[in-house]
Amino acid sequence: MTDSNQLVAKVRGLVSNQASILLGVLAVLTIVFTALEPKFFSIATANNILTDWGSVVLIAVGQTFVVISGGIDLSVGAIIGLSGVVSAYFMANILGKTSATPADQAYGPLLLGALVSVAVGAFVGLINAVLINKARIVPFIATLATMGAALGLSVIFSSGMPISGPNDFNLIGALDYNWNPFSVAVIIVALVVAVTGLFLHKSRFGLYTYAIGSNAFAARAAGINVERHITKIYVLSGALSGLAGIYVYMRLGSGSPSSGTGRELDAIAAVVIGGASLMGGIGRMWGTVLGTLILFTVQSGLIMIGVAPDWKKVVVAILIAAAVAAQTLQNKNGRR
């Protein structure tokens, strides 16, 4: 009797735990796709998914901070394009390295290119913050405006064409296509995600992010400089988008203005599937990490089983609806 009660309680605890629900969804997806296409269950597929995950999880992590603080950042996709184009231009035309540069001489330029890319992203984030804090424009409109501006600038900068530069494709390829699906780039991304996750959940920076999204008036009354913190959050989101920009550059070997097209929606979808609330105050880093993984598992799976890609949108829409419904139910039960 008590044993079974304990079991029930345990199961209930598990189910109420967002991360385990998401892992369950991931497992079910994997089983379904494998049943339909056995080649899906492979290191190569894992590598495909992780490679996609690498760019979008970075902007989704930034988006997690933004969403928890009660805002939204639509400029992240456009920043991928702009920062990729600017850093490619920098490496190609200022450092004078091209795609013909041998891979082993690409690391220095890539590192500098990464700094440029992150700086470009952080700068756009700063403009977002100024529009929100000083011009008092709501985040949706402010970041929509910078999204358009960043896109326009990247087209002007590149004449709309990809700019190629130095690269080492080994950094983006699997370490071992038979055994190890991770790439150097994905490992670096995972480390960045882990560190930002610690900051979200363990540090004052994260606490203030939750506090502002939960009740901005209370945060201000407690002596928090809300505007300054909002600035930091948008700069962080921009900087992470810039990092995603150099990641995509490394993936393509070139910077292209359209290389982030539509990614803001992927990021928001991942964050919401991960259990964050667009009303602010709620969200977990694990949720975002798994939400992004689910997104690309669906994408890979649908391509592998040969279903029209439009179905990805349908499946993602269902997942979002389920995530939001789960949240509403939890709120009703008083759990948050």
């Binding site: 606490l207 939750y210 506090a211 999204g213 939960s214 009740n215 209370a218 945060a219 407690a222 002596g223 928090i224 105050g281 709620i282 948050r336």
Partner: peptide
Amino acid sequence: LAPHLTVSQNVFLG
């Protein structure tokens, strides 16, 4: 108070 934070987080906020 910030409803999404815990009791102690609220007490120590700021």
